[in-house]
Design a protein around this nucleic acid. Structure first.
Length: 1071
RNA sequence: GCGGGAAUGGCGGAAUGGUAGACGCGUUGGUCUCAAACACCAAUAACUUCACGGUUGUGCGAGUUCGAGUCUCGCUUCCCGCACCA
């Protein structure tokens, strides 16, 4: 479709753009005939209209292509939204509305990850059931969202804490329990198939992901096992299973935390200490999917930083495991994992983790005392200490020797805490020439360092981990390169049964239990210490009510308090699921939110396929975003979802930072400096020089000020410091001085009136009174000094304090408002000469404690939702962190007024004409269509807003109020400012919503202009411009350029070396 | 230490290798007003010049190119992530 025809459609048949079935009847709200742009009138009107007419309801069937836009699942916190939160929602809303205008059937849902710790902590404090507080939080969250005019289909809202929702979380858990990961099939298979295979032929030939300690059983042995033993064996295969594991136990929270909920040894939420504790926990065998989760990253369009974090977390390393014999201990072998098996000839010692199980058996009697002491010391150190002291090299020698399988050399066996028990086998072969940690250790303990590559350099300075060059001192691989050596060594190891090639992961199975109340109950019960699932027909297993939300006296989870919490006489599992359970699959529930037979119907999943665009913060990089990919791979294995990866594209929105304002409270030092500077200095000449307290001053007490030719001394102090006043008074008496006490508070009262104090001092100087002190109690207690005056005083004279940004406008404190706050109740302000108090500012995280939180409701109330939406986008690129500055919103507000004004050319009536647009007007319009379309496609919303401003300014200049130009603009504006667009769309005479209009297309023809100002460069620098026909030929352009006086000046009579002409662009003359 | 990203006016930020600083804020001046607010108009990178103009400018240093904010190489600083991970 070309642009001309597009325009014609708008002119003649606006109703052709409507996709609603004809049966849909819209009742139109009354349209006022006012000219003024009043967002507070039109916005609520259209929000109601949208709701009444179900404008945002989405069907699961359509002839249109589908598009699924998803916002990351929010936790409905009680704190409410600040302006940073809706940033991503606005961007995704714009994209959704744009896609709809482009003819897509768009799914854009919203719901709540409504299980979680904060509601439970609140319940513990207040006794209020988490369901109630959560409900309230959701209500306020929802009202804040609705205020902004999002196009969510609220009929699809979901909540993880709703039994209708968590029924299916429990159901998926049951599927995980009922499946194992078969490495031959490379997917999850039913556990029943495993049982059938084992009972036929044992498990020796089964290649499956299972616990390390899974025994090999024959069919006969299996069939002879008791039911209980069989179940215990199967647990070693199931994708979710209870197991003893060291977990991050947080006593303060009474719960286990996952690794990503622990930061620097304390809990991420609340910062409570976390300890390692062995507990029975449900686990998810995510390690089965480690490889697939890694490979899957290559197929999805996600930010590189997120992918990299997930790769790090999975931590795949390819290497070899090698078994070392131990001298004098037949039958004992030390297994090590190495990624650099090629360096094995450079191994000069081995190191075990202090916790390694062989340490006690290998230690010789001579070394026992030393080893025991080291083990004890290492065990006593906390994680934090260990992390802090990574530079310190410590260790102890066991007295035993391992044998290098390749060359038979004796390698002393050491223990050291730089080897971690939890990674690999807890033992390393140490190659000091290639590994810096080994090098540090060898240097410390005088162990040999043997070079193994001819390219290694400076080994007396540091290890050189290079792989370049050829091997030396290396037995069977001498002379080989790295890529030749590795397979040769692995082949040798495997032939001699001393090791094998192996891939290792840092990723651990994920702990899935929380000793908490406010989460999904695990649909399992315990019989004979073996877990069984409840029947599927008994789902959902509804969370019972309990009297208190705390662990029992015996330390059992809160669910142990529930009456009758058992299933067919057996106790239910007492822990609940973690926060990531519901969020690992919620995106499917939106597709089919009310289905009570399936978590999502096949048809719905088939229609919506996967998320096309996922928008959210980067803080969920390894929590939610990795676990949800894991569950999705599993659901895909079961044939329940169409794709291995559920989100095609992911974008992280950047944080909106706060702009904090600061005030400066004067300390005592300020008053001394102030008195000197503003009061005393002016009459120095009258009174002679003055002595100020300083070293070498002879009096017993250092007075703040003393006059040389007058016996008066002045002390500046708070009236509250009675002791000090008494002391100084006594000292003055014995020194024979007259004392004037100036209350610092009195100075505050008169801070903008230095003459007042000066007069007092003059009086004092003239009088003969021995003790001069004010009798009135001062009114003010604190002084705040304007930021612009600070440079006159020492920085130490002030305390810098956050001030609520609500009291500040354009960095000027609203003193009247401020006085109503406790902080400023008894304060005075030292202001600039114009009477203003200026604040300094800094960019910080937006948070309550920094008093820089801005509430979107306030922005909407003052400027309207459309303005707020567009300003959020205007701040900068969606992915960047950027500071919020409310001041700038006036620019967007002004733009909307101007845009509105285009429709009211004679000031007071809405009128657009059906005149043919001029060429200029068409160029302006089509340029805007092209730019905005391109920019939305690349999520550059900030530049879209700029283009709208530009087009509005230009049309104002052209006095254009033609339908053919303005109507397409209304459609383009609709995703950004849906309310104003809807209002104008209806005023333009359309009975149906602007959401169902058609996005305009640009026509290149209109973008061209006949002439252009060509820049003329001399040697690449701009020196002149010349107006030429846009399609001017190279020869003509050159002629025109050289004819210019400006150019001749630079040529200086000589012919140009070369002339570069870029058609339609520019001319560069090389001199 | 490893990995990723960034650096452009007073501020937020624009610029398919082709007129650096679009757009907006702020600031300054003007119009309107008794006045203020709003609104509107104009100026606004720095230095220099009465002016025309000139010089310098995208963290620093080289390079490629007729031409570099953009590409290449080497640094600096900041932010984010990971971290005795064998």
């Amino acid at each position: 479709m070309n642009g001309a025809r597009q325009t014609a459609i708008f002119l003649n048949r606006p109703s052709s753009t409507v996709h609603r079935p004809p049966s849909t009847v819209y009742r139109l709200p009354s349209t006022e005939k006012t000219m003024e742009y009043r967002p507070n009138d039109i916005e609520p009107k259209w929000r109601n209209w949208w709701k009444e007419n179900q404008v945002y309801k989405v069907d699961n069937q359509s002839s249109k292509p589908k598009y699924y836009v998803l916002d990351m699942f929010p936790y409905p916190s009680g704190a409410g939204l600040h302006v940073g939160h809706p940033l991503g929602y606005i961007a995704s809303d714009i994209l959704s509305r744009y896609k709809r205008l482009k003819g897509f059937n768009v799914l854009h849902p919203m719901g709540y990850d409504s299980f979680g710790l904060p509601a439970e902590q609140y319940a513990i404090q207040t006794g209020i059931h988490p369901a109630i507080s959560t409900e309230q939080n959701i209500a306020s969250f929802r009202s804040q969202l609705e205020n902004i005019g999002f196009s969510y289909d609220w009929s699809r809202e979901v909540r993880t804490s709703d039994p209708k929702f968590y029924k299916w979380t429990q159901w998926i858990f049951m599927q995980l329990f009922n499946h194992y990961y078969d490495t031959d099939a490379d997917k999850a298979l039913p556990i029943a198939e495993l049982v059938a295979r084992i009972s036929q032929s044992g498990n020796a030939a089964v290649h499956a992901v299972c616990d390390d300690d899974t025994p090999t059983v024959s069919a006969a042995e299996w069939n002879a096992m008791s039911e209980r033993d069989q179940q215990l064996l199967l647990l070693k295969y199931r994708l979710t299973y209870p197991g003893e594991a060291y977990v991050n136990w947080c006593p303060a929270l009474g719960s286990v935390l996952s690794n990503d909920e622990v930061k620097d040894g304390v809990s991420e939420r609340g910062g409570h200490p976390v300890e390692r504790k062995l507990m029975k926990q449900w686990n998810m065998r995510i390690t089965a999917y480690a490889d697939r989760l890694l490979e899957g990253l290559d197929a999805i369009d996600w930010p590189e930083s997120i992918k990299e974090q997930q790769r790090n977390w999975i931590g795949r390393s390819v290497g070899a495991s090698v078994r070392f014999a131990v001298e004098g201990h037949d039958g004992i072998q030390i297994e090590v994992f190495t990624t650099r098996v090629d360096t094995i000839y450079g191994a000069t010692f081995t190191v075990l983790a202090p916790e390694h199980e062989l340490v006690q058996r290998l230690t010789t009697e001579a070394q026992r005392a030393e080893i025991d002491a080291y083990v004890r010391w290492a065990a006593s150190r906390s994680e934090v200490e260990r992390m802090a002291e990574t530079k310190k090299v410590t260790g102890a020698f066991t007295g035993a020797y391992a044998i290098n399988p390749f060359n038979g050399e004796r390698l002393p066996i050491w223990i050291a805490d730089y080897v971690l028990a939890g990674y690999g086998t807890g033992a390393v072969m140490a190659v000091p020439s290639g590994d810096q940690r080994d090098w540090n250790f060898a240097t410390q303990f005088h162990l040999p360092i043997v070079p193994i590559l001819d390219s290694q350099k400076d080994l007396d300075q540091a290890a050189d981990p290079t792989r370049e060059g050829r091997y030396i001192n290396s037995g069977i691989i001498n002379g080989m390169t790295w890529s030749e050596a590795v397979p040769a060594l692995i082949r040798w190891l495997e032939e001699n049964d001393l090791g094998k090639g192996k891939t290792q992961y840092k990723l651990r199975n994920a702990v899935f239990s929380r000793q908490r109340y406010w989460g999904e109950p695990v649909p399992a019960y315990w019989k004979d210490s073996v877990p069984y699932l409840i029947d599927e027909q008994d789902l959902p297993l509804v969370l019972p009510n309990i009297d208190k939300y705390l662990p029992t006296e015996t330390g059992e989870p809160p669910l142990a308090r529930a009456e009758g919490w058992n299933y067919r006489g057996c106790e239910y599992e007492l822990s609940t699921m973690p926060g990531w359970a519901g969020s690992s699959w919620y995106f499917y529930r939106y597709m089919d939110p009310h289905n009570d037979r399936e978590f999502c119907s096949k048809e719905a999943a088939q229609y919506w396929q996967q998320v096309d665009f996922y928008l959210g913060g980067s803080e969920h990089a390894v929590g939610h975003l990795l676990y949800s990919r894991f569950w999705n791979h599993f659901l895909h294995d079961l044939g329940l979802v169409p794709h291995r990866e559920y989100a095609k594209k992911l974008v992280n929105q950047g944080m909106i930072q706060g702009r904090s304002n600061f005030v400066y409270r004067a300390k005592e030092q300020f008053f001394e400096e102030y008195l000197m500077l503003k009061v005393l200095k002016p009459f120095l000449s009258d009174m002679g020089p003055m002595k100020i307290a300083e070293p070498g001053f002879e009096e017993a007490i250092q007075y703040d000020f003393a006059f040389e030719i007058n016996d008066l001394v002045i002390e500046v102090t708070s009236w509250k410091q009675e002791d000090k006043i008494t002391r100084v008074r006594q000292a003055a008496q014995s020194d024979g001085k007259r004392l004037m006490v100036l209350y610092s508070e009195a100075l505050i009262d008169q801070i903008n009136n230095p003459e007042f104090i000066a007069d007092k001092i003059r009086e004092a100087l003239d009088s003969r009174e021995p003790f001069i002190i004010a009798t009135e109690r001062p009114r003010c207690e604190q002084l705040f000094v304007s930021h612009s005056l600070l440079y006159k005083y020492s920085p130490e004279a002030f305390t810098k304090l956050h001030v609520d940004v609500g009291l500040v406008e354009s960095d000027v404190l609203n003193i009247e408002k401020a006085r109503t706050q406790p902080l400023f109740g008894k304060a005075n302000f030292k202001t600039d000469p114009n009477g203003q108090y200026t604040c300094s500012w800094e960019v910080e995280k937006m948070s309550k404690s920094k008093y820089n939180v801005v509430n979107p409701d306030d922005m909407v109330a003052e400027h309207g939702a459309d303005c707020f939406r567009m300003f959020e986008m205007f701040l900068g690129p969606i992915t960047d962190a950027k500071p919020w500055n409310t001041q700038g919103i006036s620019g967007v507000s002004g733009f909307l007024k101007k845009f509105w004004g285009l429709f009211f050319p004679d000031q007071d009536t809405f009128s657009v004409t059906d005149e043919e647009p001029t060429r200029d007007e068409l160029r302006v319009l089509h340029n805007c269509i092209k730019k905005v379309t391109d920019d939305i496609e690349r999520m550059s919303m900030n530049t879209c807003v700029s283009h709208f401003m530009i087009v509005t300014n230009e049309l104002r200049r052209l006095n254009c109020s033609k339908r053919a130009v303005l109507e397409p603009l209304v459609v383009m504006l609709a995703p950004f400012g849906p309310h104003i667009a809807e209002e104008l769309w209806h005023r333009l005479g359309h009975p149906t919503t602007v959401c169902d209009a058609v996005w305009p297309m640009h026509n290149e023809e209109y973008l061209k202009s006949d002439t252009k100002d060509f820049p003329i460069q001399i040697n690449g620098k701009l020196r002149a411009t010349v107006t030429l026909p846009t399609d001017v030929s190279a020869a003509d352009a050159e002629k025109a350029a050289l004819a210019l006086e400006q150019v001749q000046k630079w040529l200086d009579g000589k012919p140009p070396k070369k002339v570069v002409f870029v058609p339609g662009r520019m001319i560069n003359v090389v001199v």
